[in-house]
Simulated scan of single mutants.
Amino acid sequence: MKPIVSALNAWSCVVISFFAVIILSILGSLYRSNHHSFTGSEGDPEDGTAVAGSIFTAVIVYAGFFVFCGFQAFLHVRSSRRGAITLN
């Protein structure tokens, strides 16, 4: 198989998606538990579980990006080990 995106884009997407999954998982768990620093004041959302559901949907999307871009990066590594000639 040939990669669809460039190596730089693939690795950038892997790193960004990895950190997004971690950070959004922490935020989602804090909203799900109705942590007072996120749901305690007047301007904050009242239903923390609904916000957590939206955040966990974003986590699933970023996990999909992580898997796809990780596979693209793997294809780049595999093709560079074989000595394949690339045209730019």
Rank of each mutant, 00 (worst) to 15 (best):
M1F: 08
I4P: 00
V5W: 01
V5I: 14
S6G: 14
L8C: 06
L8R: 12
L8Y: 07
A10N: 04
S12A: 13
C13F: 00
C13A: 15
C13G: 13
I16R: 12
I16L: 15
S17F: 02
F18L: 15
F19A: 09
F19H: 08
F19N: 09
A20K: 03
V21P: 03
I22C: 09
I22K: 04
I23S: 13
I23D: 06
L24P: 01
L27G: 05
G28A: 09
S29P: 03
L30R: 11
L30W: 01
Y31S: 05
Y31N: 10
R32L: 15
S33F: 06
N34T: 04
H35K: 04
H36T: 09
F38E: 02
S41R: 08
S41Y: 01
G43T: 09
D44N: 15
D44H: 13
P45R: 06
P45D: 03
E46A: 11
D47V: 12
G48Q: 02
V51A: 02
A52C: 05
A52T: 02
A52L: 04
A52V: 01
G53F: 08
G53L: 08
S54H: 07
I55H: 01
F56A: 07
T57Y: 07
T57I: 11
I60M: 00
I60P: 01
Y62T: 11
A63T: 14
A63I: 06
G64T: 13
G64V: 07
F65M: 10
F65N: 08
F66G: 03
V67Y: 12
V67E: 01
F68T: 08
C69R: 01
G70K: 07
F71G: 07
A73V: 03
F74V: 12
F74R: 12
S79T: 10
S80E: 06
R81P: 05
R81G: 04
R81C: 09
R82K: 14
R82L: 15
G83Q: 06
A84F: 00
A84D: 12
T86V: 15
